[in-house]
Design a protein around this nucleic acid. Structure first.
Length: 429
DNA sequence: TCTGGGGTCCTAGGACCC
DNA sequence: TCTGGGGTCCTAGGACCC
């Protein structure tokens, strides 16, 4: 809740990249324009980004790729592996452009940002939105949609319409009551930010189907059944800002690294390699935000879509003193894994979660155990992180992560890393 | 053959204490 | 006969987000 909790004169824009991963692929591969294109999740599993042509074929979000491969091919389309190096890089370019338009920028996800516009002067916000949209496209090649209103939740709704209704040409501003009512009337509760499938179902049973009906719902009823979180959503629909723009990203309270394997894995040693890679990744993220973890969990599971004996289990340990020293974390994780592992199962996925995360400087003093940051171990981590940042991930890696890595995920349809790897830079002939 | 990965917040209920 | 009531901390599970 912000300080006032009162109806406000804020102006907030939500900028959302259209079909982001597909749009990234199209920036460097013009052949993909105008044909159905979908991008798959890790391990070439589910469809996580769809071009409009894919949506027109009624292929749902999250569907397993293999089920729709034939249909996509028949329509001259393409299925691609996800290329996060590319998307991450294009995302920062988009955010960079946005930061020139307002100092008040919250990067909400890889393809979305809120812009605080309060205090800016313009006669026509929609015109301003179209101008911003053109600028982002010109500098990055990424098409975006822009919604402008009084609260984040309302800006999301404006954005939704801007994207869906062609006449708005990608930007919509809803500030006066009449326009807000019109926008809310035309949106289902499930399309409201904060209302998911369960709440939609529940609300429908109670004759609340549109955002407008939700906004007008009884306070007590909402608080009781949708908790305070849902109540804040309703207040936001009424124009009371409850969710502030956060310019600085908050430190993570938990960090998970997990992957499905490219094949079934039974062998303990292969699992050890995987776990050790995941720990390495998690610890890097931990040090990136200048934190240490006080708790670690390792988990392991079989393929839930396959017949046969299932095993799905986890085991955890406390870390004292809390640490981000990779070798120590690997040691502990492997110990946990050996306890967790049972022979004769075909494993499909494993992972590591670090939690009880605190800032480096908040590590309690201990007479028994020195803080890793204060001795050679800290120096080592800083040196390795620097090398990997400079020369690419895994320039320096741990022997326990293995060389062969036969369990690695499948990425059969990966596009080149046009912007982040020298040898993949497109050549102009 | 082939079904992702990474987060947050809130609440209820149990354990424990006085 | 009569079986309190409040506080805190922790965890598991459920809702949501991208």
């Amino acid at each position: 809740m912000n300080n006032t909790g009162l109806k406000n004169d804020q102006i907030i824009a939500l900028v959302d990249c259209n079909n982001f991963y597909v749009s990234c692929e199209r920036v460097f591969n013009p052949r993909l324009h105008g044909i159905p294109v979908a991008v798959l999740s890790n391990n070439d599993g589910c469809i996580v980004s769809r071009s409009n042509e894919i949506k027109a074929l009624n292929i749902p979000m999250g569907a397993p790729g293999f089920k729709y491969e034939a249909l996509i091919n028949q329509n001259g389309g393409e299925l691609l592996s996800s290329n996060y190096a590319l998307y991450g890089d294009l995302s920062s370019r988009v955010m960079d452009v946005l930061s020139k338009f307002s100092p008040d920028l919250e990067i909400y996800s890889i393809d979305e940002a809120f812009l605080g516009l309060t205090g800016m002067r313009t006669q026509n916000w929609e015109e301003w939105g179209h101008w911003l949209k053109r600028a982002v496209y010109r500098y990055t090649g990424i098409p975006v949609s822009i919604g402008i209103s009084r609260t984040k939740t309302l800006a999301k709704i404006a954005n939704h319409h801007a994207k869906k209704i062609a006449a708005y040409r990608g930007a919509l501003c809803i500030l006066d009551e009449h326009r807000i009512d019109e926008a809310l009337k035309r949106i289902k509760t499930a399309d409201v930010w904060g209302i998911g499938r369960q709440y939609e179902k529940f609300l429908k049973q109670n004759k609340i189907e549109t955002a407008l009906q939700l906004r007008n719902a009884d306070d007590k009823f909402i608080k009781h059944y949708l908790t305070m979180v849902g109540y804040k959503t309703v207040l936001e629909l009424r124009g009371y800002a409850c969710i502030d723009i956060e310019e600085a990203p908050r430190a993570k309270k938990s960090i998970v690294s997990s992957r499905s394997f490219g094949k079934q894995v039974s062998d303990l040693q292969e699992l050890e390699e995987a776990i050790s890679s995941y720990v390495t990744l998690s610890a890097e993220k931990l040090r990136d935000q200048k934190s240490v973890a006080g708790h670690m969990m390792v988990f392991l599971s079989t393929n839930r879509f396959k017949e046969g004996p299932q095993y799905n289990n986890s085991i955890s340990t406390s870390l004292f003193p809390p640490t981000a020293y990779t070798p120590e974390l690997i040691l502990q994780a492997l110990e946990l894994l050996r306890e967790l592992w049972l022979p004769d199962f075909e494993y499909k996925k494993a992972g590591v979660m670090l939690s009880n995360i605190i800032a480096e400087e908040d590590v309690p003093l201990s007479f028994l155990e020195a803080n890793y940051l204060d001795d050679k171990r800290g120096e080592l981590m800083r040196a390795i992180d620097k090398l990997n940042r400079l020369h690419g991930r895994d320039t320096v890696k741990y022997a326990s992560s293995g060389i062969a890595q036969k369990w690695q995920m499948k990425q059969a349809r990966l596009s080149p890393s046009y912007t982040t790897r020298w040898k993949d830079i497109p050549k102009v002939k």
